[in-house]
């Protein structure tokens, strides 16, 4: 794929838009369609596109496998951590209402945002590392 200039150029143009769209879907999921699952997959799709066009080694340089392994567990940890934080603040596990001492609705907002972030991180890292595993195998 190194010698084709059109895919390389198009990828360069599209990649920021894809990643930005993924972030939009991630943080706008409360108001429109979207959320952590979709955002994670779109983010991963952007990286898969990059790795397909520019080669696996370049992609590994940007998103190293150790970072992905951290991300895979970090997402689950954020999710469970929000639950435990709710418990420590006197609520039930995964009860977001207590996260904000003034207004339970704000607490719910915060909880959902964090939880979706955790889901997004895990899903994106999982998809990219599965892709690395498949792509790295064939060489």
């Amino acid at each position: 794929m190194q010698q084709y200039s059109v895919p390389r150029l198009i990828t360069k143009l599209l990649l920021p838009l894809i990643l930005l769209f993924a972030l939009y879907v991630q943080f706008h999921g409360d108001f429109g369609p979207g959320g952590g699952f979709q955002a994670g997959v779109i983010f991963a799709a952007g990286f898969v596109l990059y790795a397909l066009v520019y080669g696996l080694d370049n992609a590994r340089r940007i998103m190293p496998p150790w970072l992905l392994r951290v991300g895979v567990s970090l997402g689950v940890l954020i999710y469970a951590g929000v639950g435990v934080a709710g418990m420590l603040l006197g609520g039930a596990f995964l009860d977001y209402g207590v996260l904000d001492s003034h207004d339970p609705v704000h607490g719910q907002h915060l909880g959902i945002l964090l939880v979706e972030l955790g889901v997004g991180i895990t899903v994106a890292s999982v998809m990219i590392s599965i892709f690395y595993a498949f792509a790295g195998r064939g060489r």
Partner: peptide, 19 residues
């Protein structure tokens, strides 16, 4: 929604087994 994402994860596991 969640089932789709779990489905792709398990499919990837199956494909890895095939490999």
């Amino acid at each position: 929604l969640t089932a789709i994402v779990v489905g792709i994860a398990t499919t990837a596991l199956g494909l890895a087994l095939v490999v």
